[in-house]
Each structure stands twice: as C-alpha cells, then as structure tokens.
Design a protein around this nucleic acid. Sequence first.
DNA 1: CAGTTTGATGGAAGCGCTCCCACACCACAC
DNA 2: GTGTGGTGTGGGAGCGCTTCCATCAAACTG
Lengths: 334, 334
Amino acid sequence: MSSATLDDVARLAGVSRATASRAINGGSRVSAKASEAVAEAVRTLGYTPNPAARSLVTRRTDSVAMVIPEADERVFADPFFARTLRIVTRALSSRDLQVVLLIARPGEEEDRMLRYLRGGHIDGAIVVSSHRSDLLADHVADLGLPAAFVGRPWTGAHRVSYADTDNFAGAREVTQVLIDRGCRRIGTITGPADMSAGADRVAGWRAALDAAGLAADAVVEGDFTEDGGEAACEILLGSHPDIDGLMVASDLMAAGALRAIDRAGRRVPDDIAVVGYDDLGIAERTTPPLTTVKNPIGDMAEEAARLLLAQLDGTTTIPRRVVFAPELVRRTSA
Amino acid sequence: MSSATLDDVARLAGVSRATASRAINGGSRVSAKASEAVAEAVRTLGYTPNPAARSLVTRRTDSVAMVIPEADERVFADPFFARTLRIVTRALSSRDLQVVLLIARPGEEEDRMLRYLRGGHIDGAIVVSSHRSDLLADHVADLGLPAAFVGRPWTGAHRVSYADTDNFAGAREVTQVLIDRGCRRIGTITGPADMSAGADRVAGWRAALDAAGLAADAVVEGDFTEDGGEAACEILLGSHPDIDGLMVASDLMAAGALRAIDRAGRRVPDDIAVVGYDDLGIAERTTPPLTTVKNPIGDMAEEAARLLLAQLDGTTTIPRRVVFAPELVRRTSA
DNA sequence: CAGTTTGATGGAAGCGCTCCCACACCACAC
DNA sequence: GTGTGGTGTGGGAGCGCTTCCATCAAACTG
C-alpha cells in the first residue's frame, strides 16, 4: 500500500503542502521549478493521493455508476449490455472517471442499489434498461443525482436526460416488410411490457397492421431472452397456427423463435417470414439470417455519456433528450 | 444528496457524536435508550454516513475489485465470467462488500488498472483469467493487496491464494473418451497458451495420447472464443484432413468447431468425434450436444471469495490454494 | 520613485468520520 | 466510610487532502 502522504512529498520537494497539492492537480499558480521538484518527489516516493481524503474535501468521487436493474443472467446473455458498457466506459474513462457496474435484480437487491446511489459513492449514473416499477428516473431526480438514461424511462421521463431511439418507427417499418412481401397473418413476440422499448415496438407493429387493415391480435409477451422467445413462439404457433409472418421484438428472442418454428416443421421465410430487432451480431448468424432493425446502441450510449458529462460539468441542469433513428437491415428471413 | 452529517444526528438524538457513531456501527457500549434515540434521528434525517470520511479513518473502503485482464468482448461473450461474477458478488455482498468490476484489456488499459489497485480504492481483489504477461500475481503480492485468484496464475503462484481445478486431469480424461471410442487421429484446439488453464489442458490431451501410443501433433491454438474455435478448426481440418477425434479446450470454441466441421460436410460424432470443456450451458445446446468436462466454476468462485475474506479478516496471511476435481459429462458428440 | 498589479507561496481551517482516553456514575463489596 | 470494578458517555485528536486567505517578491505603471 502506498503509505507516502502529501506531507512527505512536500517535505522532500522542499515546498509547502499547499504548493505540492497545486502542482499535483495540474496547478495553475505554481512555478516551473516547484512543479518539477514535486513531480520528482512523487516519482521517488511512489506517491498516490488517498482518494478518500481527496473526495472528502472535493465532494467528488470521480466515479460513476452504470445501473442495470436486471437479473445478472440476462445482463450477460444479451450483447446489448456488453456494447453499452463498453462504449460508456470508453467515453467516461477518457475523462478519468471510473465506471462502477451496478447490477441489481428488481425487487430483491433494489434497496441495496438505491442505498448505494444515495450513499455518495458516485458522482452520477448511467441507467440502462429501466423498468416501469423501478421508478429509477424519479429516484435519481429526487436525489438530484446527475444521471442519463439509455432508453426512455417509463415514468419521470421529463425529469431526466435520456438518449433513445425511435422504436415505434423501427417496428412499424420492419413490420411493413412483412406486409409488403404478402404476409396476411402477422404475429408478434413483444419485449417486456413494462419497458418503453417493449411497449413502443408493439405499438409500431400494431400501427403497421392497422394501416394495412390486418388483424393485430396474435401477440405473446417475451422477455428479451432467447429461451423466452422460443417459449413465446411455441405458444403463438399453438394459438395461431395460420401465422405467416412474425415480428419479434429482439434478435435474441427471434433466434429462439426460429428454433421453435424449425421444430414445428415450418420453413422460414417461405411458411413464416420472420423479422427481428437490434442487429447486434446474432442476427447475421441465425439460419436464415434475420431481417431486422439496427438499434443505434453505440449512438445512444455515447450520447448518454455526453449527457451525463454535461451535468457533471455543471454546464446544464435541465433534462435533455436525444432520439436516434433506427435503420432497416434486410437479410433473408423476410 | 444526503447532506445530514453525524453531528446533526447526534444533536437531534441528544447525544455526542462519539455515541452516535458507536450506535450506528452496532455499538457495543451504548445504552438501549441512546441507541434508540440515534436510530430515530437517523430515520427522520435520512442520514447516510459519508463513505469517504469513514474510509479516511478506518482505512477500509468496503469494496473489492473483480479484476479481469481481458478484452470486454470476450468477457461478455463467455458465460464463464458471468457465472464467476455472480457467485463472487453474492458471496461478498453478504458481508456488505461492494464488488467493482475492473475489465482491462492487457497492455492498453493495464496501467490504468494497476493504478486503480494501487490507489487504495479497494480493500482486496479477486483476479480472474490471469495471463502470463500481466504478472498480476506478482503485482498484488508486491502491493501487499489481499487477493485471491480464480485459476492458478502463471507466475508468482506461490505468492498468492488461488482456487483452481485440475485441468490436466480433466483434459486427459475427456480425451480418453475419444480414444476409448476408437479414434486414432485426435487433434486439439487449445486455449490461449499463456494461461495456465490453456496449457494444462493441452498437457492433459497430450498425456492421454502418449499413454495410448497415438501421435499428438494436430494442435492449433484458439482463444476461448466461438469464432476463434471455428477458425482454428478450419485450419486443423485443412492441415490434418484425416482427423477422427477432436478435443476442444472450451465448449464455446467447440461450438465454433462444430460449425466448421458441419460446413466441411463431415458428421459428428461419426466422422469426427468432438469433446469440449466447461459444461456451462452451451454444451447442451449445440448439435449434437457436447460430451465435455464440468468445470467447477461455482466452487472455485466461492472458494476464491472465501480465500479473500480470510485475508480481509486478517485470519491468515499465508497464501493458500484449493483445487477442485473436474467431472466428465457424457453427451452425444463423442 | 511611490503605487499598483501580478504571480508564487505557505499557514491554517476544515471536510465527516472513528476511536482513544478520561471521566462520571452506579453498583457492590469490605 | 473508602475501595474496586464495570459501564456508558463526551471531549478531542487526527485521518490526508484541498482551498481560502494573507503575505511577499518581482514586475510593471505613470
């Protein structure tokens, strides 16, 4: 453990503690000579500032949380989170902010998480995958904690900054692909109904069907997991055997659905055309590769980081929202 | 932000700051009356102790790092890490220790990570997936940082505590399955050569072949990723077209290998019998399901947590090692 | 040359907490 | 009455750092 203190550094450099501190923190009012002496002392002593002491007085911890109110199984199974974490980490670490990953399954570990956020461990938070019941937007707004959401929160959206994509438009557009290719009985496997992305995508699917004058009643709720998609698809095939098109609210679920369809002895896209959502890599690997919608996760994550930084810098305090456009990706599943 | 301080609590409860502090920290020498008054004050004020101030004096941060010197792509793609993180988190959070995930690709972000470990941000570390060149065991030993490794570190193994499994025995045993079923030309796709798990598994494969008097020269190095396994398998099929058995050092790579074999028009297990390693869930989902070795990750992770706690408690300071036995799992790929 | 600005410096306060230590208090003994 | 021990309490020091403020030297101004 580094046991050298700032005092030691100052003494060795022949300056006061105040000057040493200024020199170390990119001091503005320090002579070149003093600055050099301090740097030298730091080097020989292997000095590292004590973060606790520092943050006690600066009231900053130089670390931010990435909050994921989701079961860990799902966090690691869904490439969405990996991508987001990666991009956020990269964006924030360029500013010397440490990202602390906070995974807490709703309900069980939620208190623990809120206590952590409240406890002053972190300067701000990036929240991903917020659900209706977690009320995270309200919580962070109440705390006055700088925060940015990836994906619009269900409630309290006007109180926080967020980056989102137009899930409604994306879903409508990709459903239109099914309609255009001649499908007349189009079902959907939705995302969780308590997430804005889930709800928006069903709404888009419904809008497309309504506009085409098709029935929009073949709906089963999924959970954004591969197994969940498979199970949902089985149910759907049972209750609506005449389905000839399927809009699945995520590629991961679509991969599961493809398995179920295959097992039912039906062919994609000839018997049933399938489209997914996200385009995160799995989409190109399924058989057949999925026609899907590119979810601009990179853009959203980067923007969320930027939104958070703006608040951390005190540049702005009013909530801002940024929405990115989705993009259709055609492959062979529809 | 909670701005109430211990002083406020003490004043409201009508006691001194010292008594309030004792009461809050499960005080031993506090009257029931004082204790109750403090609890009440904490409640009405919504008081949360300032962690920086606390750790400045206790010299503890109540958080530990889980260090993964690996590219984030791989961390999230490999279920091994999810499992480990989950179990470690669970084991440590029961002791109110916060786990901070530290993912740093070797080389690039290594300095940053070491600075973090050295900086006094954490009380200890669990290190997963250490590579030969990262010298993490030596680094933490030099720092005197309490630490436990999941998997034996390549160098400095005698200086730190670790939990491991007998990869040599596991690999030998699963290779024997191939030999017993009559394979005579058995290749292997190894893990990274700079990780003990990788090296031990090739050694086990080689030992089995040597004992059976078979040639052990069909070797290609993989990287524990699915794509890597696929590429490695292609190379192997090209250079050794007569292969009738394949021992792949991880199920994830084996899944890739199965794809390559399928594309080459050969059948598993009839043309080529394949065995994997890890048994983390993917193994049951491949076609055909993989015969593999169960890697006791849960045991290792739990033990590592225990080893770390022992050091944190000061119970012991001498490095300890614990090795768990692997277990053969037979399915249909061999 | 007095007067003013500018820049570099160190003294000292104080961030919120824990914990040592001295102190009071109340038994219960002799 | 004076001891003796145990128990709860508060005063106060101090953890390592940043930052306000006063100081002082040097460099300008007219």
